[in-house]
Design a protein around this nucleic acid. Structure first.
Lengths: 340, 340
DNA sequence: TTGAAAGCGCTACCAG
DNA sequence: CTGGTAGCGCTTTCAA
């Protein structure tokens, strides 16, 4: 009898057949018992024997075999490339995972660094997820969507700046963030605006539309806009501050609070008064932004709740033929503090 | 019979049998061609026919079926509970994912919020991963490890404060972080030390050993230590600062830079001079810490590189019988700035 | 050079 | 109430 678990490496995992043998029943019965199949009544003694056998062997069902047989899984795939830092995103992520789990989905985050769009879609399709929720770090083309659909994905949902054809979309309009920041600066009397563009790769999906937003707001007021590339380090910030007076700007949108804080400090160290000489606005409304002096003005972004998104996933999975919807969920507003 | 591919929702994903039929060959041949099986020579025209058929149908192999047949997968499971924010962690994560991918593993991050240790281990085991790399947010018990082993996991590796029995471990000694901070404060002449304990859940694995570390350093010098619970918000920080003089502390370790900055600002606003009256030290060496005035002293933590860890995973998978090793990889050192 | 068939672990029918 | 059995999609002998 194998009651002492001495399977360091050689022995294969126990299967339902092993459990059946040990319990002296058939594999079918094992399946019925362990899944509490309602349609079949099994005697209590048998149930106990099966349960004990399973326990003793340390039996764990084989998810792949199960979903192969079932013809579908309850896996929700969340592709990610670069995990975006920041409390906003991680809160969202955690909420989403938690909500999906309580709807009985298996959440799988699949890292897809350095794959192109179709390559990635293929890799995801191999796992036959019931739903794919793309957070927008990895591109998703109509071809990719089609491929996922044919591989059994009931729901393909994109969360990000734009809607992708054929998917349900949760559009988070980054343009609006820029527009709000731009309008605020204009309102504060600024006419020559800089916009920080992060030098780090992968942030273009956010930074480019934000720049567009600032442009739109500026144009309406006859203000000018200059994009300013900046890596998130002190030296480049210092260098940028050193040539600030040549740039002749009286307001700047810092992409987000972190870049804004970096730049603001560099400006102050270079003797440029904030907000008198140059107003600074960030976004994300981080706690740290309130710790600097002057306190950082910012665009507060209310991201969609993870729970809402989970519900959308579930609805689309159950009703796969609903036409792709476009949901707009990004309430943002300016928080005016002292830096502008 | 399904002759016309109406892929919208109803039609199932094409299988290798469908490809075989369309190409006029057997399923075996399809498999040989698509996997470039070296042991078998297939004529070039046949190969082309198969490839074209696969292309036309949008065929994607079924990962579950494949690994079921193969008896093993190349899935590396990264369980996560609350995704820890912070650039340190995300850089590490990205590196790890990238490195594992280039070693041809499929990296799957599995969110396990609100599950207890053994429940979680079971859920992971169902996926039959070849390796599990636990980042320490979810507890892993010896029972859990045993279960994973029996389910075919060749490598179970824990990254975190302590080693778990039966696993290879990458120990990141959080005690040391606290000890360094404590020693530094003592060295700066401080004798009554506060230690911030984050009020947010899930951080205990870090905060408790760090507190222990400070205690050890303080004890050696005859200094006292007081733990201070603090939520990451301005109000509680203000409240703590308001009763600061009653606490009668002349030095504080802020858990990390973020909490340290929050507290430092609250202290300054309450009229307590930093570092004269109270010295403040954080950890993580964040960029923002250098933007406040006084600049924040901090404990710089050099985490293990993701690449190194990936190599360890690979080595253990190939050589599963190597005795569990304990690797120590956490070079940390104090960066003395102006707040202490 | 290709095909037929077995079987990975599981569940769902249908008999007994 | 329980057991036999087919078959999910795939790879891999063994035969032709």
């Amino acid at each position: 009898m194998s009651q002492s678990p001495k399977q360091s490496a050689g022995s294969p995992a126990p299967t339902s057949a092993d459990v059946a043998r040990l319990a002296g029943v058939s594999r079918a019965t094992v399946s019925y018992v362990l899944n509490n199949t309602a349609a079949v009544r099994i005697s209590e003694p048998t149930r106990r024997r099966v349960r004990e056998a399973a326990e003793e062997l340390g039996y764990v069902p084989h998810a792949a075999a199960r979903s192969l047989r079932a013809g579908h899984s309850r896996m929700v795939l969340l592709p990610t490339a670069h995990v975006p830092v920041g409390p906003l995103y991680s809160r969202f992520f955690n909420e989403l995972q938690w909500a999906l789990r309580s709807l009985d989905y298996t959440v799988v985050q699949y890292g897809s660094v350095g794959m192109d769009a179709d390559e990635a879609a293929r890799a995801w399709a191999e796992l036959r997820p019931v739903a794919v929720v793309s957070l927008g770090h990895v591109e998703l083309t109509p071809t990719g969507v089609e491929l996922l659909r044919r591989s059994g994905a009931k729901a393909v949902i994109t969360v990000g700046p734009q809607q992708v054809e054929g998917t349900h979309a949760l559009v988070m309009d980054q343009t609006r963030v820029g527009r709000l920041a731009g309008a605020h600066l204009v309102e504060r009397g600024r006419r020559r605006l800089g916009v920080v563009m992060p030098g780090e790769p992968g942030l273009e999906v956010f930074s480019v539309p934000r720049l567009e937003g600032v442009r739109a707001a500026a144009e309406a007021a006859g203000a000018t806009v200059v994009p300013l590339s900046l890596r998130y380090e002190e030296e480049p910030a210092g260098a940028l501050a050193a040539r600030w007076r040549d740039l002749d700007l009286d307001g700047v949108f810092g992409y987000n609070d972190e870049y804004a804080m970096l730049l603001m400090r560099a400006l102050q160290d270079a003797g440029i008064a904030v907000p008198e000489e140059t107003a600074v606005v960030g976004s994300d409304d981080l706690v740290v932004g309130r710790l600097l002096r002057p306190r950082l003005s910012t665009v507060h972004i209310d991201m969609v709740g993870g729970g809402e998104l989970a519900e959308l996933v579930d609805r689309v999975v159950r009703e796969p033929d609903t036409a792709p919807e476009r949901h707009e969920r990004l309430d943002s507003y300016v928080v005016h503090r002292e830096s502008s």
